[in-house]
């Protein structure tokens, strides 16, 4: 090395390679970019695979000469093994349990969100939010245990013989508790996204905190809250373990909360858990149900995303 005092002279190449501005082939750089692109695009393949596999088997199901769309959507008994294809036997239970769940989770979740975002002190939030997070992190099979062995016995003491051991009410109630944290946290995000100026505007006109919250903030966050509800519904429709454990094991076209009935998801879980031979009508029928589930939740999710994006733009 040269004996230099302070400065490093530019354009000298001590230890450096020579300048050459011409484009270099950076093979590893392009290779990595290619790999990353593949990782990014893989999620598209997953969706395509879902649609293709579910669609293919579902098509086999609907191509069976015995199965008609009329029977599928027009009758209420489901037992593919003996030629009964009325999907309503399963949809009724899905609708019932999901409705109970939303009826529980919406008011509770929304109220929690309003409290957390408008009323709670920093300290309260630091206690309350983790509780909701824990609730959200409990595996659904544990909620199933809770429904069957805690909620159902309590309902039993209330309704006595009026209620069956497996029933939609218990499953729906517990599902509501499961969805509560989801609705609460999404709604809270929507509420806290409402600009401070809007609240201050209301306070400056002499409104109380409640009036501000309910008449200014909540309406302003309505679309975000709507998105939360839609995601909640989608989660309820797709939930499996609670209903598989607590709602009943057998299709039953009934909207009576105290009856046992099997949801679409519960049915898939029960039938696929046994020994299934591929290409049987039992096997393909499960894919038809799964395809319906996928499409319903897809539409719900798309709507909620669209709503959230619209909502976000509103304040930007």
């Amino acid at each position: 090395m040269k004996e230099e005092t302070l400065n490093i002279k530019p354009m000298e190449t001590r230890g450096f390679r020579q300048f050459n501005l011409k484009k270099k082939l950076r093979i590893s750089e392009s290779l990595i970019q290619g790999l990353l692109f593949f990782a990014g695009i893989l999620s598209i393949f997953v969706t395509v695979a879902i649609v293709y596999e579910l669609g293919k088997e579902a098509l086999l199901f609907f191509n069976d000469p015995d199965v008609t769309l009329g029977k599928f959507f027009g009758t209420t008994k489901w037992q593919p093994g003996i030629g009964q294809y009325g999907i309503w036997a399963l949809v009724s239970a899905t609708l019932t349990t999901s409705s109970i769940a939303i009826l529980i989770a919406l008011p509770l979740g929304l109220a929690s969100a309003v409290y957390l975002s408008e009323y709670a002190t920093q300290k309260m939030r630091s206690i309350l939010k983790p509780i909701l997070e824990i609730l959200a992190g409990i595996p659904t099979v544990v909620y199933g245990y809770f429904a069957l062995l805690f909620v159902t016995p309590i309902l039993k003491t209330i309704f006595k013989d009026g209620i069956q051991v497996y029933n939609m009410l218990s499953a729906g109630l517990v599902m509501g508790i499961m969805i509560l944290p989801l609705i609460a946290s999404m709604s809270e995000d929507a509420l806290s996204a409402v600009p401070r100026a809007l609240r201050e505007g209301a306070y400056a006109m002499g409104a109380t905190k409640l009036e501000t919250s309910l008449q200014v903030v909540v309406p302003a966050a309505l679309s975000g809250i709507g998105a939360a509800v839609i995601v909640g519904i989608s989660r309820a429709v797709g939930e499996t373990m609670i209903v598989a454990v607590a709602a009943g094991a057998g299709p039953n076209f009934s909207f009576n909360l105290l009856d046992a009935a099997e949801t679409m998801t519960g049915h898939i879980a029960r039938i696929s858990g046994g020994d299934l031979s591929y290409n049987s009508i039992d096997y393909t029928s499960l894919f038809a149900i799964a395809l319906m589930l996928f499409l319903v939740t897809l539409v719900l999710n798309l709507i909620s995303q669209w709503v959230v994006n619209k909502f976000r733009e509103q304040y930007e």
Binding site: F19, N20, L21, K22, K23, K24
Partner: peptide, 11 residues
């Protein structure tokens, strides 16, 4: 087109 931006920033 044939100039490498990384080299440019180095210089």
């Amino acid at each position: 087109k044939d100039i490498d931006p990384v080299e440019v920033r180095r210089k």
